[in-house]
Design a binder for these strands. Sequence first.
RNA 1: UCCCCUGUAGCUCAACUGGUAGAGCAUGCGGCUGUUAACCGCAGGGUUCGAGGUUCAAGCCCUCGCGGGGGAGCCA
Length: 463
Amino acid sequence: MKRRLIKELLRSAAYGSQVVVAGWVRTRRDSKGGFSFIELNDGSCLANLQIVAPNTLPNYEGEILRLTTGAAVRVTGALAKSQGKGQAVEVQAAAVEVVGPCDPETYPLQKKKMSFELLREVAHLRPRTNTFGAIARLRDALAFATHAFFRERGFLYVHTPIITASDCEGAGQMFQVTTLDLAALAGKGGPVDYGLDFFGKRTGLTVSGQLEAEAYACALGNVYTFGPTFRAENSNTRRHLSEFWMIEPEMAFADLDDDADLAEDYLRHLFSFALEHCGEDIDFFTQRIDPSVRATLERLAASAFKRITYEEAVAILQKASVAFEFPVRWGVDLQSEHERHLTEEVFKGPVIVMHYPKEIKAFYMRLNDDRKTVAAMDVLIPQVGEIIGGSQREDRLEVLEERMRDAGLNPADYAWYGDLRRFGSVPHAGFGLGFERLVQFASGMQNIRDVIPFPRTPRNADF
RNA sequence: UCCCCUGUAGCUCAACUGGUAGAGCAUGCGGCUGUUAACCGCAGGGUUCGAGGUUCAAGCCCUCGCGGGGGAGCCA
């Protein structure tokens, strides 16, 4: 008989039917009435399935009474309406096979709640907990919803390179990729000849797929990427990872307003999808992690985001009756405290800030007619901060090259990127969304290290 | 990288102004129960992160190192 998922059985009312389930024991309670209750979880959903194992089973004394938290079992039995309180259905076991026992003396997971810091040290076992199971399911749903959203709108999923020689955007410090024998080189002194390296030049892990995505947008119309991204910044915060996943849509024949519209539609789609498909997990987050999660997602799924210009943001902040550590004035980038004030105090929700001064933004962002600002937008959300950064791209070759030179870059190094403007240039726009920040926001989890299976941060690459 | 906090049993934490380590949970054993964070009793379990120092005496004070957390910067 084929194994059934607990998720399905809990919704079933096919009492009397024979089923097979398999999973890991969460807890066991014995009754002198002649049976033992086993709470079984198989990861298909948050809830456990109650197994009632009678003492007539041949391995009752020898194995079932010794089952402990963490043990793997396969159960054959009849689905039944539960006689007890607390659950609708249960399985009356006809056979309980211990697939893999679990030594309670050394098993790191406990039945009671454990701190997230501790669970990070056992990242290989933490998916067996309620919280990390729920996060894994939410993360999966949001990834699936991403592909569904873009596919419905005719966007092509493109794969951009992981290894790259261009540190174009200055988006962050790159991890170097090399096959050179560093240990041998260290002894020699002198400059490194990257001509001898695998690619014949210095290469690193991508910090963004945007430039390559632009090339495909300027041929296929609308595209998006969804892949790993690497930043070798020494960032030690609860919202930064050295390795994270980023979604980067890019649209041809589109301007900044189209870009903001897309960002908003996309986020609303994600929140609706999560509410529809992860209801039980979101209830869990609301109960145990952050009491406002469900209400927030429901509100955002149904309402438009606020949009303001950078100039308006500065005016609002200057009028605020709060003493900021860093005073606000036109021309300086918004600090965390300013972003938080806007999202958490003024608008009490997400806000899209548009048209930043050109000096504080990247060279590829389209220069506005005022020659002072660029067509950039950031989507800011409470708690997490910047979840999306995007812009309309500079599609005029002369302006682009001028902006490169201002940034100290040599246009000749970006010849292929210039070609996109040289030949059949079109207005186009896109953005990057930090996937983990999304999961963080949708779950209410405080630390980004707890929404990715195996987090990579400075001095931590275990597992 | 900078600032602040922190590191005691498997886990969460306690130990007054420095006097030589304790509780709950977990675990093991026993009791009780269609049980459900079960409950009751007994038991085992600690070179108090590491290295120096001050002191008659250090978990507690000082210095350095390592780990963890929060905030800032960088960004997604």
